[in-house]
């Protein structure tokens, strides 16, 4: 039993770290965008449908590199 709980806690810790890595690298940016869209825009009637993954990623990457993003 005890090893079971240790295993689950290690697993949940690993999951947490993995989520963090995905978040910090932008791997889950599309999921975040869908969530934002559902929370803020989907409630209005004439809201445009969310972008698909490819279109969103294109927009996201282009807006990311508009200003000073990297330093010396």
């Amino acid at each position: 039993m005890k090893t079971d709980t240790t295993f689950t806690s290690v697993l949940s810790l690993f999951k947490k770290v993995w989520c963090c890595v995905r978040h910090v690298s932008g791997d889950d940016a599309y999921e975040q965008y869908l969530k934002h869209h559902a929370d803020f825009h989907a409630t209005t009637l004439d809201a445009p449908p969310p972008l698909d993954r490819k279109a969103f990623f294109k927009l996201w990457q282009e807006s990311k590199w508009k200003g000073v993003k990297r330093c010396c």
Binding site: C20, H23, V24, Q32, Y33, H36, L59, S63, R70, C71
Partner: peptide, 21 residues
Amino acid sequence: DNGRDFIPTNKWIVFGHHFAA
């Protein structure tokens, strides 16, 4: 908050972005 450049973000993640920059 617009889901793109203005996003409330966890401080460790902001730290990661800021340090990488």
